[in-house]
Each structure stands twice: as structure tokens, then as C-alpha cells.
Write a protein that binds this DNA or RNA. Structure first.
Lengths: 154, 154
DNA sequence: CCAATGTCAGCATAACTGACATCA
DNA sequence: CTGATGTCAGTTGTGCTGACATTG
């Protein structure tokens, strides 16, 4: 039955994301963890073990340096991140997780994994797996604007 | 950058949503349509033919009346929405689409459908269908907080 | 001097809460 | 009076652009 009224995919995606973020936030809060904003959460997720500079984090997040900088500030103030001079360049500061930051990160990852399992229990393992699979495939650039290769054409 | 098999699901969902919204925005802009914000887009998508009150729209969007009100204001100013007194209640204003609003809505729906087809071409029809299917299933409330029935329990 | 980086400052937007008048 | 509605106002958070000093 191909019903005419498909709900918007972007809307569905937004709801799904909210489902996870609400669950994550609730679980973290219930665990007494330091509250983090979605932005900080995002920054955290693009930070690996070896650390990175603010500019690099900004590139990974797809936001400006200033935005990343601000998020870093909050996380540093919260004691989850650490700013140390980069041995390679005196002008660069290396952003790394503090021990507390590592704990928070691990916990968040655990919660997310649990959430995903709960989801599988709700909608079925096949659907959950298919969801992740579809999301992980390379979608390429959105069609329409012939944006061939450049990104910052300013 | 090896491994890291599992990217965050919320992050993937956010990227996917952005993919659609960028494509939609670009297509609408290329067509010379009135520019609409994501919020306005969202409001538009929960507005049906028979119209609705601001409070009702707010409920559907999951935001406050004030937020919906503000979005409506912008859309009315843009000439896409119309505020008419509700025949049922003098205190209610019925929000409906103007002819121009209808055109914009139809166009957006068309673009979204096209985008979805493009996606299917990129990641395969099966994956695209599975994505929509998984998203349309009832996920229920996010687990963790035993939020059985109440909503604001504070 | 040039490019990249980190940072400060201001601005725009979008969500929220608070408050209030109106009407069923 | 109570409850729902529409609306005005203020506040917060988040992202942006602009500007600037520092460093390689």
C-alpha cells in the first residue's frame, strides 16, 4: 500500500536523532555525569586519543574555529578537556581529554551502545542494522547544486 | 585513520538530516523560491490542508506556542501563510497556507521526493527503503528514565 | 609578507520561560 | 473562576562574521 503521505525524511531523521540525544542526556544525568550540550557532545565525538588542535576539531565538526573554540572552552572549564602546548609548534595548542573526560567519553559510548540495543529490541535487529548500514554508506554531496569539489570557495 | 568501526548513531543521523536539508535549501534557492528557515520548514510540514491553530502546530512540532507563533509570523510576513478567524471559536485563529504557500509546499515535497530518489541511486534502493522503514517504525520513548506516562513531573 | 592558528568581540537566530489579555 | 489561546517581552544558547596578535 503505497500511501501518498510519506513523512518527510529529514523530519524523521531529526526525530530519530532526538530520540538518541534525549536518551543519552537522561542516562548521563541519571549517572551524575557532568552535563554536556549537544555541541560539546559533538566535539567530544570527533576528538581521538592523540588529541587535536582547535582548528582541526573545527574542520572535523564542519563549523568555524570560533565555534569549536567556544565548545572547547566549556569543556575545559568543565574539567573534561585539557589544553597543552603542542611540542611540534609553539603556536598550536593540543586539545586532549582529561582522565575525567575519558571516563565521560567511555560512559557516553556505553550509553549509546545500550541505546542502540534497546532500539534493536523495539524495531527489530534487522531494522536497526539496516538503519546503521544505510547511514554509514557514502551518500556523497547533496544533488542539485553542481558543487563538484570545492568547499570553501570564499 | 584506521578502525573506529562504530560512528555515533546520533551523529550519523544528524549528517543524514543535513544532507537532505542542504539539498532542499539549495534546490529551493535555485528555483527562486522564498527562503525558509529549517524551523519554518518544519512548521510547514506539520500543517495540513484544513489548517490548524498556533497551539496545535506547536504541539505537533514539539515546541512551545511562542516558538510556533514566531515561526508563523515569519511565514505570514513572507506571504506563505494566512491567519483567518476560526468560525468555531472567536478566540482561535486558523493558520492556513496561501496559494503561494501551497505552491512552495508542493515544490518542497517534490524536491524531497527527488532527493530520496537520488539517495536510492547512491546507496541502493534497498538501503534507502530500509532507512525509511526503520525510521517510520514506532521507536517508543527513549529508555533509561522510567518516564511511564507523565511528562513534566517536576 | 603570508598563511595558519588561537582568541576576543559583536551579531543573528531560535529556542526557552514569564506574563498578560481574551474568550469559552 | 478555570482553562486554553494568542501574543508581547526578556533570556539563553549556539553559530556566524570581523578583527587581531602570534608564530612558522
Amino acid at each position: 500500500m503505497p500511501d501518498h503521505h510519506h513523512r518527510n525524511l529529514p523530519q524523521l531523521l531529526g526525530e530519530a536523532r532526538r530520540w538518541f540525544e534525549e536518551g543519552l542526556h537522561a542516562a548521563m544525568e541519571a549517572d551524575g555525569a557532568t552535563p554536556v550540550s549537544p555541541t560539546q557532545s559533538h566535539l567530544f565525538s570527533v576528538l581521538d586519543e592523540q588529541g587535536a588542535t582547535v582548528a582541526e576539531l573545527a574542520r572535523r565538526m564542519g563549523v568555524t574555529r570560533q565555534t569549536a573554540h567556544q565548545a572547547v572552552q566549556g569543556l575545559v572549564a568543565a574539567g573534561l578537556l585539557d589544553r597543552t602546548p603542542d611540542p611540534a609548534s609553539a603556536r598550536q595548542l593540543l586539545i586532549r581529554r582529561t582522565p575525567r573526560g575519558n571516563r565521560a567519553h567511555d560512559q557516553a559510548q556505553r550509553v549509546l551502545r545500550t541505546l542502540e540495543q534497546h532500539l534493536a529490541a523495539r524495531i527489530g535487529p534487522d531494522a536497526a542494522t539496516a538503519l546503521r548500514t544505510a547511514l554509514e554508506l557514502p551518500w556523497g554531496p547533496p544533488p542539485g547544486p553542481p558543487e563538484a569539489h570545492g568547499e570553501t570557495t570564499d
